[in-house]
Amino acid sequence: MYTINSFKKGLKDGLPICIGYFPVSFAFGIFAVENGLTILQAFLISVTNLTSAGQLAAVPIIAGGGTLIELAVSQLVINSRYSLMSVSLGQKLSSKVKLFERMAIAFGNTDEIFAVSVSNNGELGSKYMYGVIALPVLGWTSGTLLGAIAGNVLPPIISAALGVAIYGMFIAIVVPVAKKEKATALCVLLSIALSCAFKYVPFLQNVPSGFVVIICAVASSVIFAILAPVKADDSTPDKEVENNG
């Protein structure tokens, strides 16, 4: 099997991801400052984490003085999907990629970087991976910085509009899969129903926000992992495969 190891090709593949990340991280910068973090703090979170959903969940916990356990568990659960992507990406990397290179590549394994890099035919080298990661990291961090700075200056109407950008990205990830896989659609609806219950049912409202996401996501995923397990080789729920065939 041949190895793709061109830094330049990596940069080219990473450019659309960078463009996509910019407005979302810009909105994150605004959100973080609105919640009471400083510009530097918002920037540091993006530099060290590179995870949209995790960061969005972390800001209210940090700003609200939540416990470190709540923060750690929320990041563990929300970002647990990366562990599967890392397993998958790890098998795609060339055997020439050294241990410390794997450790560096792991930092940049986001949903989009993962999706773009594993869609290549052949094995991947470290130079290619550094190329794919470079521009999205730049887009994510600079977007956060500018959003955090501009948040105070922008007219409220613009901030309001940008406030939905990050959710728009989440919706764009979830809806196409839910449309294709009935089990995933039902699983998502269950998660939403639970999350609404924690928002509107009186005594459930007292549960801290970080835990709500964890409980909803884990409960609905466990239930559907039992009711509609995926096929081992292609990770789509069995029932769907039967329906199609």
Binding site: A53, F170, I173, V174, V188, L190, I192, L194, C216, A217
Partner: peptide
């Protein structure tokens, strides 16, 4: 998908 939808 459950994480993102519960957050959204």
């Amino acid at each position: 998908y459950t994480v993102l939808s519960a957050m959204t």
